[in-house]
């Protein structure tokens, strides 16, 4: 079936099997492999993308359900070589280790900051609770999000 949607700012139109998951469409058809699959059941958040500005697990969305929507993947966050301030702070604060959860983590945090530019620590923790990270213990990630909010407010 035909799916039309805006992907990282660009209008796209594809013909796809109706049962294809959004994650498979992104990874296999568009080669946007920054979206990762860690569990396939919506528990780990590695496949997080933004759908109409909201963080969703792309393993729980069918490609067909993305019709008429706006999807942003990790590849759509930086502008070319210029990182977003959140991405920069992920680096500055050591929020990245193996990096497998990082794309989803960045997108969940981006969605939070878009909706709530000045979140409390508890709100940050809530926003990324659906993104499992086994390396960092989350502390440096939380710091990076906090600092980004601070910079934005200033």
């Amino acid at each position: 079936m035909e799916v039309r949607f805006k992907l990282n700012g660009k209008e796209e139109e594809v013909t796809t099997e109706p049962y294809l998951r959004l994650i498979d469409l992104l990874r296999d058809y568009f080669n946007l492999t920054g979206t990762k699959e860690g569990c396939g059941v919506g528990e780990c958040g590695a496949c997080t993308v933004l759908m109409n500005g909201r963080a969703v697990n792309s393993c729980l969305v069918l490609a067909a359900q993305a019709n008429d929507s706006e999807i942003v993947t990790i590849e759509g966050i930086a502008e070319g070589e210029v990182l977003s301030s959140l991405q920069k702070n992920f680096l500055t604060y050591g929020a990245v280790q193996c990096g497998f959860c990082t794309p989803g983590m960045v997108l969940s945090a981006s969605a939070l900051l878009d909706q709530n530019p000045n979140p409390t620590e508890e709100e940050i923790k809530d926003a990324i609770a659906g993104n499992l990270c086994r390396c960092t213990g989350y502390k440096q990630i939380i710091e990076a999000v906090k600092e980004t909010a601070k910079e934005t407010i200033e």
Binding site: G42, G45, A55, V56, N57, L60, S108, A111, A129, G130
Partner: peptide, 9 residues
């Protein structure tokens, strides 16, 4: 319920 991602869907 679940996580933000789950609650969004």
């Amino acid at each position: 319920i679940g996580s933000v991602q789950i609650r969004n869907r």
